[in-house]
């Protein structure tokens, strides 16, 4: 379509892609429709559920709110890129072991979000429930719950998610 298509380069899960995309496309739709990486889910397309969470230049982000054209040159890690070959990441293993999902639709977003969240916590970032803002937060259950609240799970697997995050961090 005239004037609508544009070209971008994305590095997704370590692999560089030169893509011709509709300028209106979200990063989520480019991943799902153009690259066939359907692990990132579309639960609301409004940034209100977190199912589309990916790591964008190393930080967790909602791919549905990111215009793909604005991410030209970015590095993206999706759920498909969390494992090291056949070896699942500690979080992925813990999610299975702790039954941290039921339908599995929010799971890729939960996993990417938890991966990014652990990194944020390791850097000492505070959250809304952190008492002393000048100290490094202790990532207890209350902290994990607050920090993972951007990922809704209608099956209600929250207890398993918190347990899995704790286990993977240990």
């Amino acid at each position: 379509m005239d004037g609508v298509d544009t070209s971008i380069t994305l590095t997704v899960n370590g692999r560089e892609h030169r893509l011709r995309i509709d300028v209106r496309s979200s990063l989520l739709d480019v991943l799902r429709e153009d690259l066939g990486l359907t692990g990132s889910k579309k639960g609301c397309d409004q940034g209100q559920c977190g199912a589309c969470t990916v790591l964008l230049d190393g930080r967790r982000a909602n791919a549905c709110l990111a215009l793909a054209v604005a991410q030209d040159g970015a590095e993206v890690t999706t759920v498909e890129g969390l494992a090291d070959g056949d070896a699942l990441s500690p979080l992925q293993r813990a999610f299975i072991e702790r039954d941290a999902f039921q339908c599995g639709y929010c799971t890729p977003g939960q996993l990417c979000s938890a991966t990014g969240m652990l990194e944020e916590a390791a850097r000492g970032w505070p959250s809304a429930v952190t008492g002393d803002l000048t100290a490094d937060p202790d990532l207890d259950e209350t902290e994990i719950r607050e920090r993972m609240s951007g990922n809704l799970c209608r099956c209600g697997a929250y207890e398993g998610i918190v347990a899995a995050v704790k286990e993977a961090r240990a």
Partner: peptide
Amino acid sequence: RHHPMLVQAVLSGASGQIRNQ
């Protein structure tokens, strides 16, 4: 250090993902 209410306000908005963006 200086503006707890600003930090708390921003942290109480949206989600970790959205705050990153």
